[in-house]
Design a protein around this nucleic acid. Structure first.
Length: 805
DNA sequence: GAATTCATGATTTTT
DNA sequence: TCATGAATTC
């Protein structure tokens, strides 16, 4: 959710400034040292729950109240809007009166602001648009097609990834082109150059550009750098382990004169390396500012001793760490509960049963209970179980509000009005709702725009000057019918642009919806029409709120800042706001019916990915899917660096818990349609036995539709697992050739007895190595390899497809 | 030019 | 399993 007006517009309350002594009251020695550090570079290494935000807020208050730093001279940078909001609130409480003028931004938000003001040095007009992934992909797809590249082999997103890499290493297209050695890079180099040209023509920047352009601006325009250095004298950077080299450089440039830079981070919580985050930036910080004061906050105020020790046992297996000695005055608490369920459905039931017990017997409110998982797909089993048992939940993530087609469509109209050069927006809506403008017609418009150096919208307007018979000055090759359709679209846009001078964003949305008949189109959609209409209404509501908060400023400025706000705001930001529907990735199974709003608001449990859980805390945390291949994720298994990151992800999850931590794994799991045996995560084995309690539940087996008998579940550990299926008759040994209905032919690598089943590891030709449970996998023995053959051959590939399912 | 069917491939996602 | 995009058909 957009957070409405930011920062400077907030009303300033008048109150006496707190005195230095009061400001620092209640801090522990480390916190005190960090908060009261007067000036110069400062690195704060802050373990989970060590009061990081508290210290930052106190530090700001101290600078204002004790060092007499004017609040508008302090720039605090966070990664998320939510963190920015929280920090701001905390500061305002501590230093009421002046903290309202404190500058708290996200990295991207700050850069957008700089570019709105000074982007013209780089040829950027102030109403520039911020391209998101969808816009980027559209743009890149066109370019690759244009370059005659096969977009199946070289996907737009793979090229964009390489470009993003380059940008985060501060490489321009020219620099990139100089160092290409592979064919792919040659393609990327050419695409990069065209991509930047396309963005420039559209008066647009992507997320990386926001940072890179500011870097370039400050680097190449000394007067601009000085201006911003004059403006800000003190810098704070939150979640420093998540900064990438580009962000680091921007910060370094800004702080290079006054040297008052304070960064806070925890390298053990660096889980965004795939977004170019570079945890070694902490070392880099010390290299750049060797005289930096280093403060380590190692007292945890969050987790119990046991939870802390368990988390530490896991993270300490990582190499090259900056070791911390986390400790707490909290009690020992309960052991970490490990549990193995039969499958993901039973896993979910276990979680919900225990959650219910926590609510009833231990008085923990549901909103203090979170279920965390590595991948979003895991939420499904949890959702189904919640619905079945009537447990209210909120799902964080899923399909994001601003990524929904209908929301983007409406926004695209606004974007095109605000920035008529915005090619991606035009691309999106020129035929939405369909008005008879074909792909071919769009291509012709594009050709014309390139040849005549026009924006797409200008080409649309110009097309109407093409005389009916024969061709006009632009030599456009379009049938009359297409010209007419394009004309209609042009008229619509003309009208919207004209009205944007007097209409506020909300009214503009109304006008656009009215003129395009968009809502009528949505209503025709039987399945999702209602939901989509609701989303559009919600967007309108957001615009209305925003407009009101702007207090009647110039409509076009409001429009631009509304769009910026929307572009830089993610869904997580609205997470803790009541009333926002974020439940229901799957509308057919979710509790989206009218009652849902009520339940969710009352007291839901939280379903969330481990990544998104960073920065949050709960009384009780359940981490589900503690299995090899999930956590650590299978994609990380070969690369030690990635494996270390998986460990950090696990660590982040574990340290979210205050009182109770549950780690669950399932014996088998459905994944992409097929059931597979799963083995417990290696991370589980790393937790000392003294810290855990274990149980294995094999209660429901496959009869998963029935609600569990609570008594049975309670005593499940002591009840022998019921035989759900007959024991496989097939005895397997390594080397046996087998045939599987789906994977085709393969060779048994190993086979072992697992509880009441046999788990076979089979190498399939072309499909890789799979673990299969014999009771589920329809394996057919094809031939038996001689046991005494020392060089047991890998499968001779038999032609697949002899046996359909 | 739009609707339907088919193939494909699928971590995480602060902005 | 299931959502997304291209190919195919109306």
């Amino acid at each position: 959710m957009p957070s409405g007006p930011q920062d400077e517009n907030t009303e300033v309350r008048q109150a006496p400034r707190a005195r230095g002594r009061d400001i620092l009251a209640g801090l522990n020695p480390g916190q005190l040292a960090a908060a009261s550090h007067a000036g110069g570079p400062l690195l704060i290494v802050a373990g989970p729950g060590s009061g990081k935000t508290r210290v930052m807020a106190h530090r700001v208050a101290y600078l204002i109240g004790h060092e007499n730093v004017p609040p508008w001279r302090i720039l605090a940078v966070t990664f998320t809007n939510k963190a920015a909001r929280e920090l701001k609130e905390r500061c305002e409480k501590l230093a009421s009166g002046s903290a309202g003028q404190l500058q708290v931004f996200t990295f991207h938000g700050f850069c957008a602001r700089v570019l709105r003001q000074d982007g013209e040095f780089l040829g950027l007009k102030p109403e520039f648009t911020i391209y998101d992934v969808d816009d980027q992909t559209r743009t890149m797809k066109r370019i690759l097609e244009d370059l005659q590249v096969d977009t199946k082999q070289t996907t737009p997103s793979s090229v964009l990834n390489r470009i993003s890499d380059a940008k985060n290493r501060m490489m321009s297209p020219e620099m990139f082109a100089e160092r290409t050695d592979t064919y792919k890079d040659e393609v990327v180099a050419r695409a990069y150059s065209r991509y930047q040209a396309a963005l420039f023509n559209a008066n647009a920047v992507d997320f990386d550009d926001l940072l890179l352009k500011v870097f370039t601006l400050l680097n190449e325009h000394p007067d601009v750098l000085v201006k911003w250095q004059d403006r800000y004298r003190y810098f704070l950077i939150d979640e420093f382990q998540d900064t990438n080299p580009l962000q680091f450089e921007v910060a370094r440039l800004l702080a290079s004169r006054e040297r008052n830079i304070c960064v806070v981070g925890d390298p053990d919580q660096s889980i965004y390396s795939w977004r170019h985050a570079d945890p070694t930036n902490l070392h880099e910080f010390l290299r750049v500012w060797p005289d930096a004061k280093v403060v380590t906050l190692d007292q945890s105020y969050r987790s119990s001793q046991t939870i802390l020790a368990a988390a530490d046992a896991v993270i300490s297996k990582n190499s090259g760490r900056l070791e911390k000695n986390l400790w707490t005055e909290n009690g020992k608490g309960m052991p970490v509960a490990l549990a193995e369920a039969y499958d993901e459905d039973e896993e979910a039931r276990l979680v919900l049963d225990e959650a219910q017990r926590l609510v009833e017997k231990e008085g923990i409110p549901r909103r203090e209970i979170a279920v965390m998982y590595r991948i979003n797909a895991q939420s499904r089993a949890m959702e189904v179980a919640c619905n079945r048992q009537g447990v209210p939940y909120r799902l964080v993530g899923g399909v994001k509000f601003y990524e929904r087609a209908e929301v983007r469509d409406v926004l695209a109209y606004l974007r095109l009005v605000s920035n008529p050069a915005d090619a991606a927006a035009l691309d999106r809506i020129i035929n939405t709702p369909s008005r008879g403008i074909s792909e071919r017609t769009v291509a012709e418009l594009r050709r014309t725009s390139i040849v005549n150096n026009l924006t797409m919208l200008e080409a649309v307007f110009a097309s109407q000057d093409e005389a009916g018979a024969g061709r006009g000055p632009l030599n456009m090759d379009l049938p009359a019918r297409a010209l007419k359709a394009v004309g209609m679209f042009g008229d619509l846009m003309k009208r919207l642009i004209e009205q944007s001078l007097v209409l506020q964003p909300t009214e503009l949305i109304d006008l656009a919806l009215d003129r395009t008949g968009y809502l009528t189109l949505l209503k025709d959609d039987q399945e999702k029409g209602e939901e989509r209409t609701e989303n559009v209404r919600e967007l309108r509501g957001t615009a209305e709120q925003f407009t009101e908060s702007q207090g009647g400023a110039d409509p076009r400025e409001n429009l631009a800042s509304f769009l910026e706000n929307v572009a830089l705001v993610s869904d997580v930001d609205g997470m803790d706001r009541p009333g926002r529907r974020r439940v229901g990735v799957d509308p057919t199974t979710s509790v989206l019916s009218p009652s849902d709003g009520e339940i969710s608001k009352s007291d839901p449990i939280t379903l969330i990915t481990l990544h998104q859980a960073k920065g949050l805390e709960f009384d009780a945390v359940f981490i589900v899917g503690m299995e090899e291949g999930l956590l650590p994720h299978s994609r990380s298994l070969e690369d030690p660096a990635q494996l270390q990151e998986e460990r950090r992800i696990c660590y982040v999850g574990m340290t979210r818990a205050r009182k109770r931590l549950y780690l669950l794994n399932a014996f088998q799991r459905s994944f992409r349609g097929s059931r597979m045996a799963s083995s417990p995560s290696r991370f589980l084995a790393e937790i000392p036995g003294a810290l855990v309690s274990r149980r294995v539940v094999r209660n429901m087996g496959r009869q998963g539709n029935v609600l569990p008998d609570p008594v049975a579940v309670k005593h499940a550990a002591s009840i022998p697992a019921p035989k759900v299926m007959s024991k496989p008759k097939l005895a397997l040994a390594s080397g046996d050739r087998v045939r599987h209905a789906m994977f085709g032919d393969g060779v048994v690598v190993s086979a072992r007895e697992v509880r009441d089943d046999i788990e076979a590891t089979v190498a399939f030709a072309g499909k890789g190595v799979k673990k299969l449970l014999l009771s589920f996998a329809p394996l057919e023995k094809v031939s038996v390899v001689k046991r005494d053959d020392p060089h047991n051959p890998l499968p001779e590939v038999a032609e697949p497809g002899l046996d359909g399912p």
